[in-house]
Design a protein around this nucleic acid. Sequence first.
DNA 1: TATAAATTCGAAAACGTTTGCGTATTTTCT
DNA 2: AGAAAATACGCAAACGTTTTCGAATTTATA
Lengths: 340, 340
Amino acid sequence: MVSGISLKELAAELNLAPSTVSRALNDSYEISAVTKKRVLSMAEKLNYHPNPFARSLRENKSKTIAVIIPERINTFFAQVIDGIETITQEHGYHLLVYCTHEDVEKEKKIVSLLLNGRADAIVMSVSSQTSDICHLQRLHDRGLPILFFDRICSEIPTTKFITNDYQITLEATRHLIQQGSKRPAFLMLSEDISITKERHRGFLAALKEARIEHNPIFSKVCCQNETTNVEILRELLNGPNKPDGILASVEKLALACYQAAKKENVRIPEDLKIISFSNMGIAGLLNPSLTTISQPACSIGEECAKILIKKLTKPNQPDLPNEVVILPSKITIRASTLAE
Amino acid sequence: MVSGISLKELAAELNLAPSTVSRALNDSYEISAVTKKRVLSMAEKLNYHPNPFARSLRENKSKTIAVIIPERINTFFAQVIDGIETITQEHGYHLLVYCTHEDVEKEKKIVSLLLNGRADAIVMSVSSQTSDICHLQRLHDRGLPILFFDRICSEIPTTKFITNDYQITLEATRHLIQQGSKRPAFLMLSEDISITKERHRGFLAALKEARIEHNPIFSKVCCQNETTNVEILRELLNGPNKPDGILASVEKLALACYQAAKKENVRIPEDLKIISFSNMGIAGLLNPSLTTISQPACSIGEECAKILIKKLTKPNQPDLPNEVVILPSKITIRASTLAE
DNA sequence: TATAAATTCGAAAACGTTTGCGTATTTTCT
DNA sequence: AGAAAATACGCAAACGTTTTCGAATTTATA
């Protein structure tokens, strides 16, 4: 009983042909106003709901968009999805959400699930492990509109949304230096992904600008595991040549840094100043409050969705243009980077 | 070109009937091993992927589960979905995720979208505004398996997953009192939803046990708006009869409380002790670190998924039993409730 | 060796839509 | 009034699967 009445049965009830009922429900010009009324009210009365799969099969589209993110417990990604949803929902689209947990193998599996047309398009941010991208290439080759944000894949010619990673990291590092940091360090999850490269470039540019010689071991690649990261950072903070400033390219590394500093009795910001990419609403409530670079996550989601909706709903749309759209981030200065 | 080759075309390529190919792909006993090999390898070669909508139409099931939550930017809900996904993904199910933003009207719209069988089942946590539940009743009447967690709807006879709200709040309040709070207050989002009632009951029981007379204005109903909540709490913390302890039934109210305390120069924990339901990983990094009641979110998600998968995959399963499954929460004591 | 049984496959219907085309009726025009 | 055009609707095919039923071939049994 889970599937209700069908269009055929509705038509039988009305003594009309299924084609007529279909057209009436779709408000076709070929159907008279009176018949439309009749059909509509009977449909209402019998609680008719069109079967989405029959429709998808016939029309070869699913009214569904897939979203793939590396982690769910992350304010940034949650905000992006919120942004996507606000737009797509207005147009009757549904969201399939998948999480890779930063695991490229899981990413491949998920992507292969989408080769069959279950979704009309894909919005994604690749995992930090993703360097080989042939699974993404296959998606694109198949003609499926795919759109990247934040962790983009530059090899695929499509639209990508990012923030001004280079510029904002440059400014953030300047701030760090200006507040007294002589030996800033850069924390990252992986050397491969797009944003890390750009952010690292901005970081190095600021050092060069300030004529600070960069110690390569201060460009630290961390991992997925929380406790391991804390260990790595304890070691870093305790080394013979300790950094006195941290730029964390992702939120979780800043938090690991807080943990490590606590255990090593390193005072923030006195001994160590920290600034981090993060969209946490409660950065201001941390101890000490965390200076952040926050991305316009919601806007990113909305812009992604808008461009996608346009592509999917207007007829004869060209492929998504191969361009990188940049939405600027914002630095919010808090206690963690304040000079003494 | 987005949709690849069809089963028919694949069959033609093999000089076989579509039915044979279908059976071969589904590993039917009626097909010889050699033919299976032939079919499989040709399918691989031609990159065949079965059309999910044709299959859904034929089999009357979508291999899709809908998840409805009140907010995405919330560690608890994110963890629950992670838990659900780990189980459902193993069985080839996809997740449609919807967010109501605590808006019952949006909840109704989303629910009505699911009346057409797009999803095989629903896992949800109702919005804080939800008191009239006839939209949920309609879903259940239609025979769609529906399953609640955390914010449950007791009127619908199905399985619900919650934590030991009463007991754990009782213990949490005891802790608050034991640490010296003479006038504890209880913060909630709505009086209507299930968890609030249970948690409030546990709170009051602890007061009674300690022979503390409860001032009704200390049972504070807050709202969705962050800044309004901060105002409400500033007023509360500044009133003639101020509370010296807070039990926040949801995370966001504890955070608003931190904000309010900051602005009113109320010291935590000296002047005000705070304990809150929260699954934030960084509760320990707040200033001061926050004592939390954390729910087994991931387990809740997994258990939801397991029971659902069983119902959906085994033949002739009975309806989901009308019972409430309780998974215990855990109190983690931190600085925000420490006695001086 | 004749027959029963097992094995392997094909033809066709069905799931619930949408849509191209045909047709009957009504309206409009000359 | 007759022809042309507009209106309103029905028939049937198609989308890509799965599955029932039947049939053909091969193997085993008596």
